[in-house]
């Protein structure tokens, strides 16, 4: 009887989830797209992915040593960052590119801002932006032994035709992990089934992008352009795996919807009116920066606050 009356301190409901479990699931969710990339682009893609992951994990370990913090490489977040960074590289990139990118992603973007949970931007995307600005020539050269250089989106921008069927399967030029819509969807379904992500951000992101494109692109409801735009470039990978990053997306449910729409409109602006064919990574980074504002304005009021004073 006495034992039944003991009350422990909160929290009372515990979950078996942990950072490392979630991150491991995300890594598994990324695998289909990685495997497709390696199969389609060859072993060099695998090498880039491995170097990228290894750099991220080593940087995290050494960086935390330097900063006098406990090493947290066992939480797998560095592996996820490394995978995402590698998937965002062109398959023909020189091998030092993922090393530079990995160090920038983990040390500058993540550790200097306080480590996992404190970074204001998605580390992999920030590193990608850093690399694209610094080494433009390497980061925009998508030609491999079997493919000519231009990605489907570049071809669309310059008025050439694309093969939408091959784009959905993923047989087209692009970054290692972004080409195959099917492989990305398989990974996304794994994550949704596991309860790691939900459709709020990816759904609003893709739908609002599609609406923006229908209204402003001048092609209207033409399914050819719509399918090509949605399955081309990094939109799918970004929407399901990078916009949903726990650290850099809003925590409120309403905020997630606003965030998704913001990303969709921004991507639309970049792709339709911008000079370059792609805009997903910049859209998500910009979105990351306004997340604290979104959170502040959509925070629900505590019970008893607000309303009319009687």
């Amino acid at each position: 009887m006495e034992n039944n009356l003991k009350v422990s301190a909160s929290p009372h409901i515990r979950s078996n989830n942990s950072t490392s479990k979630i991150m491991m699931t995300v890594a598994i969710g990324l695998l289909p797209a990685c495997i497709f990339g390696v199969w389609f682009f060859g072993l060099r893609a695998l090498l880039l992915l491995v170097i990228s992951c290894a750099t991220c994990v080593i940087t995290e370990h050494l960086g935390q040593k330097i900063l006098g913090r406990e090493s947290t490489i066992e939480d797998f977040s560095a592996v996820v960052t490394g995978l995402l960074l590698g998937m965002n590289l062109p398959p023909a990139a020189p091998l030092w590119i993922p090393v530079v990118g990995g160090v920038f992603a983990i040390f500058v973007v993540k550790l200097l801002f306080g480590g996992l949970g404190q970074n204001i931007m998605n580390p992999a995307l920030a590193a990608r932006a850093f690399l694209v600005i610094s080494f433009t020539r390497h980061m925009t050269d998508f030609s491999t032994d079997t493919l000519s250089g231009a990605t489907p989106l570049m071809r669309l921008k310059s008025g050439e035709s694309v093969d939408t069927f091959n784009m959905v399967i993923g047989r087209c030029a692009g970054c290692i992990g972004e080409t195959s819509v099917i492989a990305i969807m398989i990974g996304a379904i794994i994550l949704i089934m596991a309860g790691i992500i939900d459709l709020k951000i990816p759904g609003t992101y893709i739908i609002s992008f599609a609406l923006f494109y229908i209204i402003f692109s001048g092609h209207g409801l033409d399914p050819y352009y719509l399918v090509a735009q949605i399955s081309g470039g990094g939109l799918m990978l970004g929407a399901f795996f990078m916009a949903t990053d726990y650290v850099t997306c809003p925590i409120t449910e309403r905020g997630k919807l606003i965030y998704g729409v913001f990303l969709g409109v921004l991507t639309g602006i970049f792709r339709v009116f911008g000079a370059s064919a792609e805009g997903v990574s910049y859209a998500i980074i910009t979105g990351n920066l306004i997340v604290p504002l979104i959170d502040r304005f959509t925070m629900s009021k505590a019970f008893g606050y607000g309303g009319e004073r009687s």
Binding site: V100, F130, I133, S134, F135, T136
Partner: peptide
């Protein structure tokens, strides 16, 4: 050596 162009730019 390929310079990281970003260091010549404002960021």
């Amino acid at each position: 050596y390929e310079g990281a162009t970003i260091f010549i730019m404002a960021p």
